[in-house]
Design a protein around this nucleic acid. Sequence first.
DNA 1: TGTTTTTGCTAAAACGTTTTATTACACTTG
DNA 2: CAAGTGTAATAAAACGTTTTAGCAAAAACA
Lengths: 341, 341
Amino acid sequence: MNKKRVSIQSIARDLGISITTVSFVLNGRAKEKRISDNVVKKVMDYVREVGYKPNSLARSLRTGKSNTIGLIVEDISFPFFSAIAKEIEEKAYKSGYRIIYSSTENNTAKTKELIDIYKDKHVDGYIIVPPDGVEEKINELCASGKPVVVLDRYLKDVEADHVIVNNYESVYEATQYLVGQGYKNIALITLNSTQSQMVDRLSGYEQAISDNGLIPIIEYIDQIDGQERQHHISTFLQKKANAIDAVIFSTNYLCVSGLKAMKRLGLNIPENMAVVSFDDYELFEMYSPAVTSISQPIEAISENAINLLLARLRKKGTEADKKIHKIVLPTTFIVRNSSTR
Amino acid sequence: MNKKRVSIQSIARDLGISITTVSFVLNGRAKEKRISDNVVKKVMDYVREVGYKPNSLARSLRTGKSNTIGLIVEDISFPFFSAIAKEIEEKAYKSGYRIIYSSTENNTAKTKELIDIYKDKHVDGYIIVPPDGVEEKINELCASGKPVVVLDRYLKDVEADHVIVNNYESVYEATQYLVGQGYKNIALITLNSTQSQMVDRLSGYEQAISDNGLIPIIEYIDQIDGQERQHHISTFLQKKANAIDAVIFSTNYLCVSGLKAMKRLGLNIPENMAVVSFDDYELFEMYSPAVTSISQPIEAISENAINLLLARLRKKGTEADKKIHKIVLPTTFIVRNSSTR
DNA sequence: TGTTTTTGCTAAAACGTTTTATTACACTTG
DNA sequence: CAAGTGTAATAAAACGTTTTAGCAAAAACA
């Protein structure tokens, strides 16, 4: 049947008209370009008949647009990021965009490389969860006119849109809540990281502790793999078991490690220790006793991010929109039965 | 600085040599094409100096290869699939391939559309977790010479490689285990689905029940959203609470719904009911009491899938490899403390 | 010396589009 | 009737590569 791949050229040849005409018709510019209804019908019918699909590579080469969005997250296998990926994919799909994803593993070099690859693939826009050290690279990207939305954290001196949650306030309030519940020795277990979201969570804790005249107890965990992480947390909890009565984990996987450790150590929630996790997790709802958490609005984050990007893609060139959008979304503090006194 | 985008053309112009020569050098075909070391060095140095990166769109257009793999899963936000996505991405990346993903939501029409889009984007190969009804489409794909690996389930009469787990045996053995533990009224809660993996899990259960002279108790759940699903399961469990002493869930999210329902109903594990889940979940390890599960080898699945695909991509054309690989991986039965009698 | 072989390089086509500039003609208009 | 105005189409350049086929000069050979 289909001897040769059907192209705009073969259609033009078969129909005895010019390539240009076919292209105009296919791009819906028939009216504008004064193509007769006759010809339009002829082309449309034939296109349907042979099932022609334009070659998007050729089109992209010519137009510079690829209808592709680059999604660069820390780790696509983290529930938080895969949930976001799902939402973003869905929305983008409806607007005719495909998604290419990659995980940075918080590796600066890999991230830069990824950006280069995406640039080369002529991705139309970027949604990035950046590690440290890519500020310059992202600024280049923005300067080159590509829309960029930074997610989950923000970068100082980067003129890109970003969508984050109010990390500082969230942790401040969570801490305040624990204080209100009568806890006096509240520890924070957090990542040893300079990323904005971690720094802000830390600050929120420190400020709340300070505002209440308490003393901070902070343990920094390196971004190591699960085994070592858990061991580190376990050691810490064991050592401090009697010195602390509540602990806030700055990410959900730290909390999971913490729960495992506590289980092994025989520390009970909330008798021995109250627990609060930043970022909710299905597990926390079902754990016994259920774990209180700071829940991030995944849908809102995704929606804001992709909408911001799509908006920029639409009004490309419109200098009207040089304004940078910094969106800060509220979290939800979910107090679960008996996870605190 | 960079007034014009640097291309192979501009390099040739600037260096006073031909485009062809530059191309040969860049593609490492200098020796083969007898380009003098002089010229090679000149080109290489200049390329480095101006930071030239070839335009992959142009290259793809010309060669027909895009260095992109299409990953089509049921839902990228399911831990099982996002974990696979992570592994596949990593492996593919190392071999110079990027990944475009999409979620089918088990929707046949959407899946077909996705395949068309990917085809148009000249994806080099496909890894697909197919819903029912795409057999023909996938066969077309294979016939067109594109490598395809089917994942998680298989399709009758489709001549593509596939990677699955031994669903039948896994459930058979799990059931057998429960019988061995003294349970007599073992129910299966499964999806109302004709997909191979579900059918096989069901068969494994039925055979084991039959082999032991027990009576099957099967509840089919529609692939509806969380709320309704849980309600359905809850109703079932409540009604059968006294009639069953063990229940096997055919997917982990069914099991999660089940656990929630049981918690609400005050049914205790394992006093009231033993629980086994197909597909492990971090939750099951930490739940009290921990839930026994049939764990899928995610890494092996991913590795086999991407390796199969990469192999086919390499030996494209080599008719030597018309052989279809059907890989069936073993699961691990994880008996967790006190989740059964 | 004349012929062949090797060396080193290049012109040009092709991939499949989009888009600018142009043509050729028929129809108004003053 | 000359000049302008629409109308319906098209030729050709451009996007940035890869690759086939070939050419001129130098080297080898007889």
